[in-house]
């Protein structure tokens, strides 16, 4: 028996919108402490890791650990039928090949249930150890989205360089080059507007902008984003979900051959 009631249903809608274009289908792993998902894109270049802890749910019941394979495009179609103010409940029964999404309007005058077929997914699960990163940049998520979008109109790849001067995003393409430098800026009215650079050692790495732009679909989930880099590891782009967990994207770098 599985029953999860999320009063802020729009959160689940936003989560799906942020990952459905990167990953086609994924196993949702439910346990008593919450649910998680890990899935790579089809080219094995990028990975999404999602965690939503049980404390963030109004009601959370999961009698035994269970994994449900879902097509994210189909799940997104169903969640789009929920209103932004709706309460969403996810229900499942042991051994069933379906999952039910129930949508309740805030005034309880409209109740809908959508039953979705589950699928068997043979997904590769990667072990991602905790790492010490050379540099961690925390910045407004909208600013990061803007930079990725702007640079993608010039080039295909972004070089992200962190020094004690700041963080630099650079690209080059047929029409020219672009460099955007952000300096650490903590003297802002609201903490979410700050750019904070924690640097142990300078680092400079190259990534495909196509993936970075895909990650920025998670912007509505959080006012801030953190970008963690080490020269010998994939970059981690993390959007924290207030009180509940996170969506993390991992992206393998492009390296000089």
């Amino acid at each position: 028996m599985l029953e999860l009631r999320l009063v802020q249903g729009s959160l689940l809608k936003k989560v799906l919108e942020s990952i459905k274009d990167l990953v086609n289908d994924a196993n949702f792993d439910f346990s008593s402490s919450g649910f998680s998902l890990q899935s790579m894109d089809s080219s094995h270049v990028a990975l999404v890791a999602l965690l939503l802890k049980s404390e963030g749910f109004e009601h959370y019941r999961c009698d035994r650990n269970t994994s449900m394979g879902m097509n994210l495009g189909n799940m997104s179609k169903m969640l789009k039928c929920a209103g932004n103010d709706d309460i969403i409940t996810i229900k499942g029964d042991d051994g069933s090949d379906t999952v039910t999404f129930m949508f309740e309007s805030p005034t309880q005058d409209k109740i809908a249930d959508f039953e979705m077929k589950l699928m068997d997914i043979d997904s590769e699960h990667l072990g991602i150890p905790e790492a010490e990163y050379h540099a961690i940049v925390k910045m407004p998520s909208a600013e990061f989205a803007r930079i990725c979008k702007d640079l993608a109109s010039i080039g295909d790849t972004v070089v992200i360089s962190v020094t004690k001067e700041g963080v630099k995003f650079s690209t080059r393409g047929d029409i020219g080059t672009a460099n955007i430098v952000l300096r650490q800026n903590t003297t802002v009215d609201k903490p979410e507007d700050a750019t904070v650079i924690e640097m142990n050692e300078p680092v400079s790495m190259t990534f495909a902008l196509r993936y970075m732009n895909s990650f920025t679909k998670a912007t509505p989930l959080s006012n801030t984003v953190t970008i963690s880099m080490s020269p010998d590891l994939p970059v981690v782009v993390e959007y924290k979900i207030a009180e509940m967990g996170y969506v993390r994207f991992y992206l393998a770098p492009k390296m000089e051959e």
Partner: peptide, 14 residues
């Protein structure tokens, strides 16, 4: 020339 690496070159299957 830059080549795109894969995550499986950094992380092992769990």
């Amino acid at each position: 020339k830059r080549v795109q690496l894969r995550l499986t070159e950094f992380y092992r299957s769990a």
